[in-house]
Design a protein around this nucleic acid. Structure first.
Lengths: 257, 257
DNA sequence: TAGTGGTCTAGACCACGGC
DNA sequence: CCGTGGTCTAGACCACTAC
């Protein structure tokens, strides 16, 4: 009977409640880091069942506005995204981060030789008799919070040559300081959802949005040397690019004939 | 008592069920467009309550794997993303799309003069006595499905000069064909969630992921002329970029001193 | 021990789609 | 009309956190 108090329109109760809470969050009534009323309090406040309250909270979680901590409560999420420049790729990831006031580190998950999948084979232009490739999986952390899961495939000869270094540091800097010059990077940015497995690696909810960066890096000779993808927590990272007229090899701003 | 059939580990029932269904989807047991068993059938199949089944389906929805249609059923989502090149900005959006075999169209929501917000004022380097700016909101559709919501702010003098043309066509082409040359675009790509309002515009679920492209375009004189943001359905669009060494004005691959 | 959120149940009513 | 998913209820038990 209190529905009209929330919203006179035909919105479902759970939506009316989550929209109301959303307004309060944006209105500053609940600040980042602050705790929302408990489910029990919200039940009384809005005169609805617990399930409906939980549904409303789920709406807020889906919108990335709050996080739940079992045994503690629901808290307004702090928004502190870090920007990674695509124009300055991983070579200077560290500098990118320190400039933004956060510490960054790497947690290596594996570094091993595997059989390339057809997709990797195609991207790296591997001949059909190439059966070995290096694969490195790692977690990237900023301020000790996991932000990204990276899987990189490295041509066997390069991986073999610099194996020791590659295991303990970032790939681009290692190659760069060893005279392997990356001249071109093709990148596709898209957005997916965290699977259960990824959600555990990155400490996020199942289905939470991920920014995916799929890349192939080429040397001067247009020879692909590494490819891979970085799955980043969408709530912690964004990408920046600066494009200039006629500045790129792909002739930006120019119509393809 | 049937939990062990699903997963012997300690996964919650709803997760075990959604993971099981997920495997079946990826395994091809349910193809894109195909209908999943109804809630009632799943209740019997897994011997759980309807709420638990619904929770499992919600997990799949959150992972972008299925869509629900009231009165019809749950269907495996078709994956058909369209790629938009950042190197070939909106000028050639049409060509980008037709090359990928989809039709594109625009639905204009509004084109009006407003007072610039502090943020817009700063981005466009407007003096404090500038009180008018053009604002255009539009929906971008491919194959008659809404994919993006765009809000663009245009400097008053340009909006005034080309008002008629701007209302009926894309901004970049209009300016370009009138001799206003965009020399540089600064772009930030991030991911957010659909609010209730946006979710209705783009026909997606509340909280569904959005790719956000925030841009500022400059003329030769480093004068910002337009800025804005495009909110794209993450399930329908991705961005591509090609970066070349020393190819960009922002000196990519070069350490900042 | 008390309070929090996480899981799960059985059952009701409604709204939409298709027959 | 029936079957579908959408909303909502009351109530139970569990696991975690803090005191």
């Amino acid at each position: 009977m209190e529905q009209n108090v929330l919203d006179p329109s035909k919105l479902p109760l759970h939506l009316a409640i989550s929209e109301k809470l959303r307004e309060q969050i944006f209105g500053g009534e609940y600040s980042p880091g602050e705790q929302l009323p408990s489910e029990h309090q919200l039940m009384l406040q809005f005169d609805v069942s617990r399930i409906t309250v939980r549904r409303a909270i789920a709406n807020l979680v889906n919108q990335g506005l709050v996080v739940c901590h079992r045994g503690k409560g629901v808290f307004v999420k702090e928004q502190n995204k870090v920007t990674r420049s695509l124009s300055n790729p991983l070579v200077f990831f560290d500098e990118d981060m320190t400039r933004q006031g956060v510490t960054s580190s790497i947690k290596s998950l594996c570094f091993e030789v595997t059989e390339p999948s057809p997709r990797v084979r195609q991207k790296l232009k591997l001949s059909s008799d190439t059966h070995h490739i290096y694969c490195q999986k790692k977690i990237i952390l900023t301020d000790d919070i996991p932000v990204a899961l990276d899987i990189t495939y490295i041509r066997f000869d390069l991986g073999e040559t610099f194996a020791d270094e590659l295991q303990s540091s970032l790939i681009y800097p290692t190659l760069d300081s060893n005279g392997v010059s990356v001249e071109r990077v093709e990148t596709i940015l898209e957005c997916t959802h965290a699977t259960h497995e990824v959600s555990e690696h990155l400490d996020i909810a199942l289905g939470a949005p991920l920014l995916v960066n799929r890349y192939v890096a080429y040397t001067t000779a247009s020879q692909p040397i590494i490819c891979g993808e970085t799955l980043s927590r969408a709530d912690r990272l964004c990408y920046s690019v600066v494009l200039t007229k006629n500045g790129n090899g792909s002739s930006p701003f120019a119509p393809k004939s």
